[in-house]
């Protein structure tokens, strides 16, 4: 499970906060945070069979809306995920890995609709509520994984 985003930019913290909430119970072998650097992302999921990514998104929906994308076969709608001018963004990183045949067999993304990316701001209340909902869902998913698979969920 990889929480993508910047901890210090308002709702962009959604991904990292989900990951942090899972870290204590499931450990660094299964849970990580990432600022979105393509090299770092590709490293993190390299050799894994299954990866779940959590990221803030902007698709025009209401703040806090949770959307699930299975990108194992098809690209992520790039326009819905904020992209830094310095990077490829999440969608670009996924396609780069797909091109290099290093994308895990199963890649699922939980997008949480953001309201603001203010520097130093806290997450919006509705985003915060969705963060806990996604955290609970993913914790259940991890607990249900057979122990031998847990480190590679």
């Amino acid at each position: 499970m990889i929480g993508v985003g910047n901890r210090y930019r308002g709702d962009d913290a959604a991904g990292p906060v989900v990951a942090e909430s899972l870290l204590e119970e499931f450990g660094a072998e299964s849970v990580a945070t990432c600022d979105g650097d393509p090299g770092a992302l590709i490293d993190l999921w390299s050799g894994r069979r299954e990866v779940v990514l959590i990221d803030a998104m902007i698709s025009g929906g209401s703040a806090g809306t949770i959307q699930r994308f299975d990108v194992s076969e098809n690209p992520l709608p790039a326009e819905d995920f904020p992209v830094s001018t310095h990077a490829f963004g999440l969608a670009g990183s996924i396609e780069l890995a797909r091109g290099m045949s290093t994308l895990p067999a199963s890649v699922v993304i939980y997008g949480i609709e953001a309201e603001q990316f203010e520097r130093g701001a806290a997450m919006s209340p509705r985003v915060r509520a969705s963060v806990w909902e996604v955290s609970r869902k993913l914790a259940r998913r991890l607990r249900a994984a057979p122990p031998r698979e847990r480190s590679h969920v």
Partner: peptide
């Protein structure tokens, strides 16, 4: 882009 390039030049 590099993403398109990666398909043919992955290594």
């Amino acid at each position: 882009s590099a993403i398109h390039m990666a398909k043919d030049h992955g290594e």
